[in-house]
Design a protein around this nucleic acid. Sequence first.
DNA 1: ACTCTATGCGAAATCGATTTCATGATCAAC
DNA 2: GTTGATCATGAAATCGATTTCGCATAGAGT
Lengths: 327, 327
Amino acid sequence: MATIYEVAKLAGVSPATVSRVFNGVAVSDEKVAAVREAARQLKFTPNRTARTLRKQESEVIALVIPDIENPYFTELARGVEDIAQEAGFSVVLCNTDAQLEKEATYLQIAISEHMAGVILAAASDQTNLDDIQAAGRPVVAVDRGTGYDIDGVIMANRTAGQAATEHLVRAGYRRIACITGPQLIETAYERAQGWRAVIARQSPDADPDELLRYSTFRVDGGREAMEELLALPEPPDAVVAGNNLLGVGAIQVLTERGLTPPKLGVAVVGSLPFTTLSPSAVTLVRLPARHMGVTAAKMLLERIAGDDQPARTVVLRGELQPARSAD
Amino acid sequence: MATIYEVAKLAGVSPATVSRVFNGVAVSDEKVAAVREAARQLKFTPNRTARTLRKQESEVIALVIPDIENPYFTELARGVEDIAQEAGFSVVLCNTDAQLEKEATYLQIAISEHMAGVILAAASDQTNLDDIQAAGRPVVAVDRGTGYDIDGVIMANRTAGQAATEHLVRAGYRRIACITGPQLIETAYERAQGWRAVIARQSPDADPDELLRYSTFRVDGGREAMEELLALPEPPDAVVAGNNLLGVGAIQVLTERGLTPPKLGVAVVGSLPFTTLSPSAVTLVRLPARHMGVTAAKMLLERIAGDDQPARTVVLRGELQPARSAD
DNA sequence: ACTCTATGCGAAATCGATTTCATGATCAAC
DNA sequence: GTTGATCATGAAATCGATTTCGCATAGAGT
């Protein structure tokens, strides 16, 4: 816990010079050597708090996500972390539980801790970014939009929902249900829209909503919705799950009832990283979560560096990984 | 981004008084009102950096873990977060990838950002805590020990390994293998020791190491080890997986080969949160990860509050959840 | 030889809060 | 009525780094 003053005294220079040595400003070789030696002896580590206070910026970026227990978001986090690390930034992970209040708290903290920027997977479209924008901190949206004109990286959700559904159609399924997340969450809604478009084309007469379930983006939600669907007078012969956890829930229910895919067709928008199912039995539209994190982090770093071009939105596509029927 | 000085001026008081208002020190009612009103008008939020610098402590605790993509650790993180939140602390999650170097970096950051304390799942037993101890910051070990005499919360790993193995024995399996994590990681080693104890009792003549595989604590590791075991001249009829991800990997391989449990018996030390397998087919020794986080957070908060009783170690037990053979 | 520019470096100001210290006011006690 | 204790309050010091400013020295240009 040595300070710059103690190092200065030991090295026989001024504190300013010590600071210069550690910030790559021109200092004579002999003084550099003296300072480094003194710093080594005292185990000097610059106090980041003081540094941040003076410079009015820190090398920390906040990653604000709704569910840290969802592997999709941890994968995203890995992407962010890898890029940030390289650039000398550290990442603090903030879990909002999809609650606006917690989210607001973390955004305030980001401001008052002078964090360099924020990557935000918004809890809803109600998120208020006025304060953080007023503070001049860059924000990059991931996974979901925010209603503000800021940089963002999103998935082609509608397309993904469509691809998943179409693949089930091609595989011969005829009564395809859809389980997705809360209706007010854009990703959930869009994926359902993709599903709906295919259904409408396929069987224009059917009431689409009969086989559509808005739920939570969690395993429980998938289980409940799947059970509801199976209890219908005329149950579906296939289902599209709107995210990884819904897929897990749905498949759990199916497995328990002996309806293991492909007996009942399952397509998931997202990956099943820890599935113990034979990987070939379920159709996936894999979402490049890590890549989303990487892209967002790069954009944020550019903004932090002062880039002020107009806001960009990057759209990433999922990759269809079809189930192989015979395995 | 108003400062305390601006608030003071607007309210017609000194900055000291503004600080007092926000820290619950006695101030006359009228001045309190004036300050609050001024703060409201200016949207004043205290600058945490300045506060931290002056007070030499912050309301942030670091949670340092080896693998943020492992649901075991995210569950632990949830436990920590919930308790910390209640107490007004925020948690920053630091992912070390099981690399000593990254871990050391994060520990340095914890010091130089004046974080209030650290909860650490050590990357190995080589972790150096000298600096952070010298800085007087409390550290609580989770999941794994550290070689230092500090508070800790660990699982009864040996017992868990034993329970998992015994259950397979009772279920009638006779050639039980074990896949565990890196030998130098205490949890991996201990769980294997539990397995070994049962095997030694059961078949004293057998060479235990033939059926023991040290691997990584990841899905890949489980896959590889399982494949190796199946390729043996005399393959096992059951396997104990040393953690959740190894279990996933092993089961994946088995499923691909039509050896779905319980055809080949599987017991996992840990949970399979996102398994799509019928939950009853695999024996689990569930580890209370969330509870571990909760306990660790409470201990850390006590230390932060100044508690200096001798170091405590809390041992949590896994809970056997037997596979039901007929389902 | 003389100006001009560049460069190294120390003194001191600065970031924004907290906290110590001193002051003056209020009130109870004797 | 004096002493003493208590309390609200402001001025100023403080936390530890960065950065501005100004000075002194060195080297380049004519």
